[in-house]
Design a protein around this nucleic acid. Structure first.
Lengths: 162, 162
DNA sequence: TATTGTTATACTCTATAACTATA
DNA sequence: TATAGTTATAGAGTATAACAATA
């Protein structure tokens, strides 16, 4: 999608000599473009289940920590607590997950997968893994592993700025 | 941000034995998390200029192809034509870019940077490059170059599905 | 007083259809 | 009729404040 036919004008108006292709040198820009492409593929696949990527992620997180609270799910998804409400409402309406009052603290729910949710998630895992391969079909297996390692190193950074 | 304290329940309810940590194995999920972290840093930096990432990208693209049309800009940014309108309106209001009727086809505008736009973009490039380094400070220079190459390979894939 | 889940709200981003003026 | 730019609109995603029930 970058560089269409564009205007056929010379680009000798550039400001600094080394930064002319600044976007191509930024990891942030490349991350954004790559993420959009990979997600486009995944979203299409998940449409068959009437699910969004975040809802798939939620199911996977619930499976790994059954009985967790909504506040924990929010942190795991890196979203704010109010966003968990409509997300879980939809998963409950689809019969994939359940909120159960099962804690000493009666304010909170334990979140669990239903049997249908477990079975659906099993399918979703295959779909997501296949979509991931399709969207990165320009990479070898070794490159895919390398990319995954580098990305984990980036986003699992301990917090702290400037 | 993943795995907070969570519930202290056993995770022996997992469906398939190999897919228990499915999210950690997906490039799409890692791309999303990494992109969010890197953008968070960039957005904070761009706030000082009252600009969003897409507006910075637009300025960089205009510099490389001065006189381009809005439809070309839309394709370069991978956004739809209607989204270009408020974006360019803001850049014009800030005195950074201009729409000029300068083509044989009188329906279209040529888009150019103003002098202020060029000077501002020069600053923005430094800010963005520095923000990129900060957000990926867990990577060595070699790893950064490697990541950039792999990401380009992913999103510059020739189109085609399934 | 603090926390869990919720409601309400708002702002951005995204996507689509339809309009205008040119071609 | 087709295209460039625009308008209007609707849907997601995101972020914040504030409320009820419980701690």
């Amino acid at each position: 999608m970058p560089s269409p036919s564009l205007a056929s004008l010379p680009a000798d108006t550039q400001a600094s000599p080394a930064d002319s292709d600044i976007l191509d040198s930024l990891i942030g820009y490349a991350l954004r473009r790559a993420q959009l492409q990979v997600f486009q593929n995944l979203v299409e696949q998940l449409n068959a289940f009437d699910l969004r990527p975040a809802q798939f992620s939620a199911l996977a997180i619930i499976e790994q920590a059954p009985g967790l609270m909504q506040t924990d799910l929010a942190r795991s998804l890196a979203i704010d607590p109010p966003q968990v409400v409509p997300l879980l409402n939809k998963l409950e309406k689809q019969g994939l997950a359940l909120r159960i009052r099962c804690k000493p603290d009666k304010r909170s729910y334990g979140i669990f997968l239903s049997k249908v949710g477990e079975a659906t998630l099993k399918q979703l895992k295959e779909v997501a893994a296949q979509s991931d391969l399709t969207a990165t079909r320009n990479l070898s297996d070794a490159e895919r592993a390398q990319l995954l390692t580098l990305l984990h190193k980036v986003y699992r950074t301990p917090a702290g700025d400037s």
